[in-house]
Each structure stands twice: as structure tokens, then as C-alpha cells.
Write a protein that binds this DNA or RNA. Structure first.
Lengths: 345, 345
DNA sequence: CTGTTAGCGCCTTCAA
DNA sequence: TTGAAGGCGCTAACAG
């Protein structure tokens, strides 16, 4: 299993290390014939340049660290793939980590990545702590927060890219309103998350502008899972159907609501409309066909990678950037116009 | 952004590099007081050991490469998380790569990982080419093939762990038979994959033992996607319902079948039973509730990691291991006993 | 218990 | 166009 090194090649070719190095790196200071000869020998001997050693001398690895809560979450899986794709285009590799086992000290994970000399870090998270954590590392390593919104007031010093949650919330409300709904439940609001706060405010604002009130069911958990949605859904349906539409703060919650509705024999959208947020891949499945607000993961990913790479390649940037991506409405079959729900006789 | 190195610490502490190194690595050859002092200084200065440099001198990185076709595929996402978990327990980190952009030359990806000095590689794939590819690298780096079965005949020289596909196929058939089904369609057989071959043979065998014949719909694509399942499903239903149960060779295909069934107003399981294979997370969703054969990803992951680590830590192993994991039946609500389907008057 | 000294594999001046 | 030498940050003998 001994690896062949640049030295071995040099010995075989009868030249010095430096020449090999030059030949490999495409330097023009090598005669074409020796280069060809060297390349030939490399092939034959199965030479592979040692990325570690190279990175050590160059003090640049060309890898960016990506941390996501849980790759099993389809939203982050899709995001991760997009990020890898864009990064590769820009000649960076990505080192992926799940933060699920580090919930309370993402710093440890950051340290791990830093000690592996990643050139920069993209931290995917919607939790508020992530923002604070990244803030601490801001001067240590180029980094961008992905997915979590930054509040406008407290100017936390982090670079971030996220969907425009306020606009997304408004968009959701307006869609439901246009369908004629007036009695709407906002399900799964998680007050501790800025992301959720903005989403909620956008939604609420649109309601208030028409003089409508909103029934809110908060999510006491600190994650928006299918299970949480199921519990909240049961809680809602147990008291009888008092609304004609439900906005679930995330698609995962919506999935849980669907499950709860099934148990109560409530049909979607005939009995109640359901709108989600995220556009995870599950939402498009047959029988689910959830209408939702798309976070446009591809745009998020591209923006995050571009921002990070610019941070890496042109340091000295003292400011902080916050890129906002416009969300988009995806209409499937979980929302109906109100007339359909309660036909006029 | 200049990082503080072991040298800086040494200078500050007024000792030599070696002492720092020893203090950090928990060597017993350092007095407790100097160690404490050193650790203190490291904290204050924000020292982080450079994993690259360490790996270079130790010629061991403690990272294992994991390549999966596409992390967006929930089966592989779950597998990847399990692998990371087990690896961490054994003090290894994992470097994840999607092979989706390298379909035709996984070798390039292998070379990438090797040049990054991973200690070993787990290659997740059900494609036959993967087997051949890994075979070439067998003597270059410890590696194990995950998910793809090895045929018993052609003793390809690779270490592998996979579910026992033949047993899984048999299990699927027997379940359907016990429910009283006799007219069964095997949907999505992909002859080019050994994995599929074994699964199919197990299934067929069980049928033949009862003197029954099997309606087979092959999948001409080289991947078992929802889209493929949808096409095959339409093809099946277009000719009228001639079977009482369908076995879909993978859950993804089954999802497509569900979609097709919806269009034809065919109810599952009332009109036809549907059984999948894999137990991807989608299968458990409300309204889907797909009965399926579980690949027991956790067991697969653990077995693969253990095998690889043993290969890494005790080389000189000349043989080839093939671990088989017993699949398990997961009953949900997509299969019904035949009586329910066609009640006796 | 602590310091000195080689490297690990590669890149990059500086000479030739 | 090519060679020699130093150094990236760290570990592991080998001495003291």
C-alpha cells in the first residue's frame, strides 16, 4: 500500500523533485519532451499527488466545510447536493458534516473543520444559536450562514444568505386570501427562531391589512418535524374544524398535519386547504401533492457558494453581506378556492 | 487569519515543540503542571492542531471516504448518516462524495479520495460497474462495496456488505402468497444489476415452488426512480388489472406505481396490493404507508464500517469478506389479504 | 521529564 | 531549462 511519491518519480526519470513538481503543475518552465516523459512515468507508476502535502505547503486546501443539521432531512440533502455542484464548478470540494450530534456546541464542529484547514465554512441552520456561534468565528475563518434569517435590528456580524422569509410569509397569506379563505390557522410558529418570526410577521401583516385575525398554534418543540406537525394537527382537529385553511410553517409540519387529518377523516383540500413552506421533495409525491412556498434551494446554494468563495479569495472585506432570495409559490393540489369548500346552494 | 502553531505556543511557554506535542497528545511523559500550563496557553491563544500536518507525519488521516450515488436519495442519506455515526464511534471521520456527476468513471472519484489520503473507502452503489471498479483498487486501498450484491459464481475480488437480496426476494413472495395472492406482477426488474438478479431469483423461486408463474415487467432504465415506476405502472394498468398484487423491485418504483394507480383510479390495497423493497423514509409517510422489505440500513452501515476499519487496522488480510444482512418485512397498509380484495358473496 | 533532530510530500525561491 | 535547499506544522525517535 506504499504510495509512490514525487521522489520516486524523480529517481526513475533521473531528474530532480522540482522538475516533477513543475511538470505536474503545468508550469511553462519545462521542456515539452521532459514533461511528456514525466507524465508518462507518473501514469505507469500510478503516482497520485498527495493533497495533504500540497495543501500544507500552499496553506490552501480548496475545500469548504458544509455543516447541515441532518442530511436525512430532504431539504438539506438537496441543498447539499446543489452546494457541492456549485462548489465543484468553482474548483472547491466540500466536506460535509451533520450537526445533529453536536446540537449544543456547533463550535466543536467548527473547530474540527478549521483544524482540517478548510478554506471556509457554510453553516446551514435555522436555529438562532447558529447565528451567535458563527459570529464568534467571523474573524477566524470565512463563513456564511445559510438558511437562517438575520434580524434587521440586532446587526449580528455574520455573512448570511437566506430566503426572504417575510416575503414568503406574505406570499403564503395572499395566496390563501385570494382563494377566498378568511378563517386561517397558522400552525407551528416557533417564536425562538428568527426565521420563523419573519415568516410569521409577513403572514400576519397581510392578514391585518385586510382586518383579519389569525389563529396561531405555536410549536413548543425546537424542531419542525413530521411528529410535531402530527401532534399540533391533532390538537387543532380535536376542537372541531374552525378554519377553512391551514398554513403549516414548514412542509415537514404539513406532512404531520396530513397524517392527523387522515385520522380525523378530514379531506384535503375538500374540507380544509393546507399550504406548506420549503418545498421539500416529499411534497411532490403522489397523494401528497402539497402546495407550498419554494425556498429555491438552487439559488440559495449558488448564492452561498459565491459569497463564500469571494470571501476566501478576496479577504480584507470588513463588512457583512446578507443575500435574500425571493421565494416562489408552488401550486399543487392541497389548496382549494373557498367556493369549492362550501358551495353556495 | 494567521493560525497559531505549535511553535508559537512553544515560544510563549518557553519550552520546545516536542513538549507541546506531548502535552497535547496526552503522553504521560510530561509533568502535570507544565501540561496544565501549556493547555492553558493553547486555550488563550486559540491554538488548533493542524490535522493536515499531523496526518502527513503520521501517514494516517483517520478519515474514510464514502461515496454514494446521490445524497438526495433518502436511502443513501439515511445510510450515510448511520455510517458517519458508527465511524465517529470508532474515531474516524467521513468524507462524503456524490458519484452522480461521475457515473462513468468512479475511478476519478476514488483517485480524488486517495489523493486526500483517506484511510479507506466505502463505495455505496448497486451498479455492477462499481464492483469492477472497486476490484481494481482492491490492492491500492482498503475498500468495501456497500449495497451491491456479489454473485456467488464470479468471485470478484472485493470486500462487500449487502442485504441478502435472494432472501429478501423470497420473503417478499412468501408474504404475498400467504395473503392469498396468486396473480402477481414483478415490476421493475433490472437484469443488468446483480442485486436485482438475486432479488428476482429469490422471488421467482418461491413462486415456482408452488407451481405459480410470474408476470414480469422489466425496467429498461438503469436506475430505479419514481419516474421509471410511474411509466411501468402506467404500462401495467393500461392493459387492465390482471393481477391482485404487485411487487415493486424498489420503493422508489413503488412510489411511481402509486402515482400511476391514482391516475387509473385504482385503489391500494383494495384493488391491488403493492409491496416495495428498501424501506426508504418516504414509505412511512401518511397516505403512502407502503409495506416493504427493510434493508436494515443501520445494520448495513455498522457492518460496513466495522469491516473497513478492520481492513485498515489489520492489513495483510488476503481474503475477501462478504457480509450479508438479513432483510426484514415491514407491514404497513399497502397489502391486503386476497379475501378483502374479492369478497366471497 | 524535556530538548534536539529528522523527516512526512510537496512547492517555491534562488542559483546554476 | 533544471537543480539545490528551505520550509509548511507536526510527530517520533534519540539524547540528555
Amino acid at each position: 500500500m506504499k504510495r509512490v511519491t514525487i521522489k520516486d518519480i524523480a529517481r526513475i526519470a533521473g531528474v530532480s523533485y522540482a522538475t516533477i513538481s513543475r511538470a505536474l503543475s503545468g508550469s511553462s518552465e519545462v521542456s515539452e519532451q521532459t514533461r511528456k516523459r514525466i507524465l508518462e512515468i507518473c501514469k505507469q507508476e500510478g503516482y497520485r499527488t498527495n493533497a495533504l502535502a500540497r495543501s500544507l505547503t500552499c496553506s490552501k486546501t480548496n475545500v469548504i466545510g458544509l455543516v447541515v443539521p441532518d442530511i436525512t432531512n430532504p431539504f438539506y440533502a438537496e441543498l447539499a447536493l446543489e452546494i457541492e455542484t456549485f462548489a465543484r464548478q468553482m474548483h472547491y470540494n466540500v466536506m460535509l458534516c451533520n450537526s445533529i450530534h453536536y446540537e449544543n456546541n456547533i463550535g466543536e464542529l467548527m473547530d474540527f473543520l478549521i483544524s482540517h484547514q478548510v478554506d471556509g465554512i457554510i453553516l446551514g441552520s435555522s436555529r438562532n444559536e447558529a447565528r451567535a456561534c458563527l459570529h464568534e468565528y467571523h474573524k477566524t475563518i470565512p463563513s456564511v450562514l445559510l438558511g437562517a434569517s438575520i434580524s434587521d435590528e440586532d446587526e449580528y456580524c455574520v455573512n448570511a444568505v437566506s430566503v426572504d422569509n417575510r416575503a414568503g410569509g406574505r406570499m403564503a397569506a395572499e395566496y390563501l386570501l385570494e382563494l377566498g379563505h378568511r378563517d386561517i390557522t397558522y400552525l407551528g410558529f416557533r417564536p425562538s427562531s428568527i426565521t420563523h418570526q419573519l415568516r410569521y410577521h409577513g403572514f400576519l401583516r397581510a392578514m391585518e391589512q385586510r382586518g383579519l385575525t389569525l389563529n396561531v398554534i405555536e410549536n413548543p418543540e425546537n424542531s419542525s418535524s413530521l411528529q410535531a406537525g402530527y401532534q399540533l394537527g391533532k390538537q387543532l382537529f380535536a376542537q372541531g374544524l374552525t378554519c377553512t385553511a391551514i398554513f403549516a410553517a414548514t412542509d415537514s409540519l404539513a406532512l404531520g398535519v396530513i397524517q392527523a387529518a387522515d385520522e380525523f377523516n378530514i379531506r384535503i383540500p375538500e374540507d380544509v386547504s393546507l399550504l406548506g413552506f420549503d418545498n421539500i421533495s416529499y411534497a411532490a409525491l403522489p397523494k401528497i401533492t402539497l402546495s407550498t412556498i419554494d425556498q429555491r434551494k438552487s439559488a440559495l446554494a449558488e448564492s452561498a457558494v459565491r459569497l463564500l468563495v469571494s470571501l476566501i479569495e478576496q479577504p480584507s472585506n470588513d463588512g457583512y453581506a446578507h443575500h435574500m432570495i425571493r421565494p416562489a409559490l408552488i401550486e399543487r393540489h392541497s389548496c382549494a378556492a373557498l367556493q369549492l369548500t362550501k358551495p353556495t346552494p
